[in-house]
Design a protein around this nucleic acid. Structure first.
Length: 568
RNA sequence: GCGCCUGUAGCUCAGUUGGAUAGAGCAACGGACUUCUAAUCCGUAGGCCGCAGGUUCGAAUCCUGCCAGGCGCACCA
């Protein structure tokens, strides 16, 4: 509908512009006005046109309306304010959407995945396999999961992937920590170095490994062999724990991609070789880092990637002093691998602490694809965990962090998920444990779920009264004439458009703000209008409306990964 | 010092990518349950949209400069 209206207006505008060949392209864009007195759609086209044609915008609006040929559904138009064209649609026509919603059910708003759909690789969470997930990871997990739902709802082929950083120094530290604990469990006196992971779960892993093999067997192994074995076992144990954390939020992945396997496959070295062949790398030294203590800095010659040619601030090292590949090199190889696997699009969801990393990865991928591809990166800002308004220090090192699972156990998965989804990813936010627990009844998620349960209650009531639901096509929706009813209808009609905007901009939180507004309007309608009454036709029409609201709330909550209960 | 993100009601946040009178929830105050669920609704109060310029018909939104907070800044991941 929106497109049809835009097209009609565009034709009229083009006719006006015929006589001014030098005029720039003026593109018609419709918006939905905030106030319903301003109609169902509004066009601001006369204002920019006034600038081009040097004429009064209100007069121009009139000229446009004289020539435009509207689709049948348009009931009338107004010129308002400085020159807005407000368009009103026929109400009977709008309310027909209720029937569509009920016939399509959970598919309302959904676009089927076609054979030509884009394949999207959505990488998220990717928490290091060195400990359980904390709240910040949880935010990324929820945002990623909902975005995946949103994109597949809009017809994209979404592949969810978790990149396991199971290589490098941190795994050595993990293995060392577990080994120390194993020795401690044998009765040896141990001192944990500053660098070791102190968490309780390390002891659990140590215990589990000791049940698997005798201590003496492990002790007899050569050092590197032992550390490799403990490292691999510890990563597996932590990944099992992380999968459990994800499962408590009902989040699953299509693929867990191992960095270690990537190294083993030779793809990282292959990439470095390729870059050398292409001449985009050189040996050089980087200037010392600014703004932090540099006493341990010593200039060293490294293999550097010319990312500055593609928008980066400085060139970035691909190999460490000892010649092994940097994390950066592996990450480029990982993204190249995604492209080789046939993905048309890559979306990465990272924590804000990786912010400095975005430009260099995008630059690298641009360099490797002749500027044709680069990943979209969503930086999820930090979650400040507080208790009674006081910050809770979170550090894996210190072992003082609050795990995601603790929070989910305390507050509930639905509440956590919805809470994370009501904010833009760019906004850092405070999550107060005490508040989340105490105010759980005031949480927006219950507000929305309650609206859903309320419709279910109405339907139960109707059934009790012996009311038989009319066939959807037979319901006379013209009875829905009150302001509240028309607002609801318009909002239900806008659901697919909202999904479009949200999917285009990778902003899944819009689904949450939408469904909160829908619930609010329904609660308002509920208090002013009784659904089940003696008026048979009106009852049928309102039941249809209520069912449609219920369906759309359920669909929106499904995108967010939140349940829609029939009773509360 | 440099880069990225943020600054909107007392608090937590929206604001459809430049539109019409800036909106919700919590907190405060006053009302509404013999009715389909009061986990709700209605009303009142609360705003130099961080500050100062600029761009234009029009700015919370765009550009510049400040101020404040968060994150990051070779050889970790």
């Amino acid at each position: 509908m929106k497109q049809a209206l835009e097209q009609a207006l565009q034709c009229a505008v083009d006719i006006l512009l015929q006589d001014t060949p030098n005029a720039k392209n003026v593109v018609v864009q419709l918006t939905r006005p905030k106030m319903k007195e301003h109609g169902d759609y509004a066009a601001n086209i006369a204002m920019p046109l006034a600038g081009v044609l040097k004429q009064n915008p209100r007069q121009l609006a009139e000229k446009i309306l004289q020539t435009v040929q509207w689709p049948e559904a348009v009931e009338g138009t107004d010129i308002a304010g400085p020159g807005f064209i407000n368009i009103r649609l026929q109400k009977a026509c709008e309310a027909e959407v209720l029937k569509k919603i009920l016939l399509q059910g959970e598919d309302y708003g959904r676009i089927a995945v076609s054979g030509t759909a884009d394949n999207v690789c959505l990488e998220f969470v990717s928490a290091n396999p060195t400990g359980p997930m904390h709240v910040g990871h949880g935010r990324g997990a929820v945002v990623g999961d909902a975005l995946g739902n949103l994109l597949s709802t809009r017809g994209l082929n979404v592949h969810r992937e978790y990149y396991i950083n199971d290589a490098g120094a941190q795994i050595a530290v993990l293995a060392e920590s577990v080994w120390l604990r194993m020795q401690g469990l044998q009765g040896d006196s141990i001192t944990l170095p500053e660098s070791a992971y102190p968490g309780e779960y390390i002891i659990d892993i140590a215990k589990a490994l000791l049940e698997q093999r005798d201590f003496s067997d492990i002790s007899d192994m050569a050092d590197d062999q032992r550390m490799a074995w403990i490292g691999a076992q510890s990563v597996a144990a932590n990944m099992a724990m992380i999968r459990g954390d994800l499962a408590c939020m009902d989040i699953t992945f299509d693929h867990f991609f191992s960095e270690k396997a990537l190294h083993k496959s030779g793809k990282v070295q292959g990439l470095i070789q390729r870059l050398q062949d292409e001449g985009t790398v050189y040996r050089g030294t980087l200037p010392p880092p600014k703004g932090k203590a540099v006493e341990d800095y010593h200039a060293v010659e490294q293999l550097l990637f010319r990312t500055t040619d593609f928008g980066d601030d400085v060139d970035r090292p691909l190999a460490k002093q000892d010649g092994t590949a940097t994390y950066f090199a592996a990450d480029i190889a990982y993204h190249v691998d995604k492209l080789e696997r046939g993905f048309d699009r890559m979306i990465d969801i990272w924590g804000a602490d990786h912010g400095g990393y975005v430009t260099r990865v995008q630059a690298a991928i641009k360099a490797l694809t002749q500027r044709e591809a680069q990943p979209d990166v969503l930086l999820v800002q930090m979650v400040n965990l507080t208790r009674d308004g006081k910050p809770v220090r979170m550090s894996k090192r210190a072992g003082t962090f609050v795990t995601l699972r603790e929070v989910v156990d305390e507050v509930g998965a639905d509440a956590v998920r919805f809470n994370f989804m009501t904010r833009r990813v760019e906004s850092q936010f405070d999550f107060d444990l005490q508040e989340a627990k105490e105010k759980s009844n005031e949480n927006p998620v219950y507000y929305v779920q309650y609206a859903h349960a309320r419709v279910a209650a109405i339907l139960r009531k109707a059934e009790q009264e012996g009311i038989v639901l009319q066939a959807v096509d037979d319901v006379d929706v013209s009875h829905l004439s009150s302001a509240e009813e028309q607002t609801l209808v318009a909002q239900l009609l806008a659901y697919p458009e909202m999904l479009d905007v949200a999917a285009d901009r990778l902003e899944a939180y819009r689904v949450a703000t939408y469904v909160m507004k829908l619930a609010a309007n329904f609660h308002g309608f509920y208090h002013k209008n009784r659904v089940v009454t003696d008026d048979v036709a009106l009852t049928q029409a309102r039941l249809l409306l209520a069912r449609a609201v219920k369906q759309v709330i359920a669909n929106a909550l499904a995108v967010l990964g939140v349940s829609a209960p029939d009773r509360m």
